[in-house]
Write a protein that binds this DNA or RNA. Sequence first.
DNA 1: GTGCCCATGTAAGTGGTTACATGATTCA
DNA 2: TGAATCATGTAACCACTTACATGGGCAC
Lengths: 178, 178
Amino acid sequence: MSTPHAILIALLEKPSSGYDLARRFDRAIAYFWQATHQQIYRELGRMVEAGWVAVVEEDAAATRKKVYRVLPVGREEVARWARETRLGVDDRNLLLLKLRADAVIGPLGLADQVRQMIVDARERLDTYRAIEQRDFGAPSLTRGQQLQYAILKAGIRTQESWLEWAEELPSLLGSGEQ
Amino acid sequence: MSTPHAILIALLEKPSSGYDLARRFDRAIAYFWQATHQQIYRELGRMVEAGWVAVVEEDAAATRKKVYRVLPVGREEVARWARETRLGVDDRNLLLLKLRADAVIGPLGLADQVRQMIVDARERLDTYRAIEQRDFGAPSLTRGQQLQYAILKAGIRTQESWLEWAEELPSLLGSGEQ
DNA sequence: GTGCCCATGTAAGTGGTTACATGATTCA
DNA sequence: TGAATCATGTAACCACTTACATGGGCAC
């Protein structure tokens, strides 16, 4: 949903052409975020309009390649976005994106958001465990029930392992706040 | 992406009105799949056209409520979809959906698909571990590097815990094949 | 009779996907 | 010189989102 911000962050890490961005999104970044070259070119166009990014003019004449860099306004927009948009329990990739932003432009005070996500995730985990107790306590289960239990266990494991990971974050994120 | 199939499976589990479906998608199902009431009504309309579902006429006269049930053609479409569509490494929720289908209409022979996903997930995990070795072996890391490492670790943990879960599946899914 | 939930829809906007299109550079 | 890759775009379609809209049933 935040394609433009994903692109801004990628450009903050390294100014690139649309083509290079597309390749980067196909590799490292793509493991948790994807964008096709059509989206990238469209967003780059819009962000130039908005004054968030600009084409580096140096070698623009030499080749057709257009290298984009982030302008101060764009940088500020990333910070604003990271601070202000709320994250739901399922917005884990958005959190990863925000962490990238924090890594590249410095402490943004994300600790509170992470703590809230942890609270929400614990709540959901409790819900899952309650369902587990209620529906799958029986000694023997039919094939269908075993499968439904497996589906529930997928949810439980996901929450548990995410929580384990997330609980180490707040200290990493530092003091936060201002 | 497979909203119609998600709805079909929900209807196989229990014939419902559009309104009820929306509420069910807001609760249990929603933990890994979501659809708004607008999508649901649209898809129900299309699926009636296609002959996949029909309105149960019994109490249709009594209230405004329209209860839908899945017709044999729709059931067959679910089976076809579960068997034939390929799943990528990241299509975990789609796999859960297929497991629900398998739970409700019986063995569909999904074991091979799961085994392939496991192979792909192991491959990706290896990639992550290679990046870990290469980029984060240093004794001391800057704040930014620690954050990037945390992002990578999120990916590693996710793969590991998913694999642990998935490896128990093939035996549950039974003989498979025909 | 007022407010809330049930119940079903339409309409507009936006973003993502797929297909199409073009031309430059590079290497065999 | 032909093929592959680099590099940037346009166009059409489709799905999802958000907002709007309507009316019945029920409880206080």
